[in-house]
Amino acid sequence: MSVFGAVLKRDLALAIRQSADSFTVLAFFAIAVVLFPLGVGPETNTLAKIAGGVLWVSALLAALLSLDRLFTVDFEDGTLDQLVLSGEPLVFVVLAKTAAHWLTTGLPLILLSPVLALTLHLPAEGYGALLTALLLGTPTVSLIGAVGAALVLGSRRGGVLLSFLVLPLYVPILIFGTLSVEAAILGVPVKATLALLGAMALFAAVLAPWAAAAALRQATE
C-alpha cells in the first residue's frame, strides 16, 4: 500500500505543478457543452431536455482527452520501467494513478458541471441527480480509461485509438448517468440507476487495475 501513497502523492504534486493540464481539460469540457446550444439552437425546452446527455457526453470526452497522458510521461522517462521492475504490486500503482487522475480531472469536471447545467437550463430537480451520478460514474471513467491508456502505450496512433477503444465501453455509464438525470427531472425514483452506477464503479475498481497492470507489464517488456 505504501506504493499507493507514494505514487498518489507524486502524481498530485505533479498535477499541481502542471495545473494548466487540468485547466485545459476543464476548458475543453466547457467549450464542448457550449457548442451544443450553438448547434441545436438556444430554445429552453430543447436544451433542458438534452442537458443531462450533453453534460455526460462532454464530460466523457473531456476525461478521455486527459487520459492520453495518464501513463505516457512515466512511460517515456523510464519511471514506469522502474515501477515494474521494483516488484511493487502494479495494481496499486494503477489505482494510485487513477485516483490522482480522478482527483485532478474528474472532480473538477463535477464541480464545473452545475454551472454549465445552468446554461443548458437543466431543471432544478436534476442537479442533485446529476452531481451524484457524476460522482459515482466518473471514477469508472478513469478506471476503464486507465486500461485503454495502458494498452495504447507506445502504439502508432495513441490518442485516437484510445478514444476508439474506450468510448464503446463507456456506453453503460453514459446511459445510466443520463437516465438518472432524466428520472430526477420526471420525479421518478433515481435509486436504481444510481445504484447501478455505483455497482459498476466497484466492479471496475476490482477488475480494471488488474487489466491495466497487465497492459503496463506488456508495454515495458
Partner: peptide, 14 residues
C-alpha cells in the same frame, strides 16, 4: 465498434 477497436489495436504496434 468493439471489433473494429480490437482490429485497430492488434495492428497498432511496430
Amino acid at each position: 465498434f468493439i471489433y473494429l477497436g480490437y482490429i485497430a489495436i492488434a495492428d497498432a504496434f511496430e
